[in-house]
Simulated scan of single mutants.
Amino acid sequence: MTGSTSPDNDFVLAVHGGAGTILRSTMTPEREAAYHAGLRRSLEAGRAVLADGGAALDAVTAAVVELENEPVFNAGRGAVYTSAGKQEMDAAVMDGRNRAAGAVAGICGPRNPVLAARVVMERSNHVMLIGEGALAFCRAQGVAFEEPSYFFTEARWKALQDTLALRERGADDHDDSRKHGTVGAVARDRHGNLAAATSTGGMTGKAPGRVGDSPIFGAGTWADDACAISGTGHGEIFIRYAAGHEIAARLRHTGQSLEDASRIVVMDILAPADGSGGLIAVDKTGAVSLPFNCAGMYRGYVRADNVLRTAIYDEPLREFIGA
């Protein structure tokens, strides 16, 4: 589903809460309402930054913070568990103005991993920090931390137990919500600048130490002067096919539209390679693309008209007037 391009002084923000949606057959009205409300809060947070003339980088950071704070999504509070029963989170931010980038991987402690990634970008000489080194750096920089109990949710713990039980039996229920889920945001500000941010707990039952595509620039996160991308799905495939950079390269070198490039990558390149998932994308004209090749993707976008548009499955986006 695609939005029209923006006037030169307009802005646009798109967000996602992961492509590993709950199966439609098991979705309750209450949970569905909670997902839409979480997406709207994220859109409101980022829109407020952009409406005030703020930078795309600040908008995507604010939007992802809201999604990390919402336990129904797989990032920050509510992140999934590894096979060892631990939470290991990854996050990334990238500024399209100069390709400045920062990422963290395999961490648990910072209240908002996206802010940890932002600190790496702005206060270190590195692009990515992992594990204990990342935690020590974040503490030294004054990043807010929480105890492990803050990040715990009963639903994610039960998902791990169910996944481990399925593995023990050699079974697979083909429920994408167990396999992947991520949050992300992409934006174009009033000045025409682009940025992207992505944050995730990874895959339920993943091997300890596993890092997916979210903090890998050019795979699950990308921003330059042509487009900004945040992906969600089977991270190993997004990495192997450099999904984010592939879209940017198609815009830059072939002249394809954002919609064509995004759909080709998601439907024709990732899907045949078992790359279940989707992505959100904006380009320098303000065009938006939100393709996915699985059961659904929590997603939405907002422009200067303050209409918050959100959807979960293959359905028209619902429209809400922002506050």
Rank of each mutant, 00 (worst) to 15 (best):
V114D: 04
A33C: 04
G38H: 11
H191W: 05
W157I: 10
M203R: 06
A207Q: 15
K158T: 12
R167D: 05
G38M: 10
G277T: 13
R77G: 07
R210H: 07
V183W: 06
I130R: 14
S149D: 11
N125V: 09
D305I: 01
G218E: 10
A33R: 14
S149T: 07
D58N: 04
R99T: 13
R303D: 10
I22F: 01
M27H: 08
A56V: 13
L279V: 03
R156V: 04
D8Y: 08
A63D: 12
R31S: 08
A51T: 11
A185N: 02
S124C: 07
G133K: 00
L67A: 04
V143C: 15
G212D: 09
E246Q: 08
V15Y: 00
G181H: 15
V183L: 06
D268W: 00
H174K: 08
E32P: 01
N293Y: 06
R167T: 02
C138S: 06
V80H: 02
G54A: 09
I269E: 10
H174R: 12
L270P: 00
I107E: 05
I229P: 13
A207I: 02
E236K: 04
A91C: 14
M27Q: 12
R47I: 03
T285N: 06
L194Q: 14
L39C: 07
G300E: 03
W222Q: 05
G106H: 00
H36P: 02
A226C: 04
N293E: 02
A281P: 00
V143K: 08
A56Q: 01
R99W: 04
E246W: 15
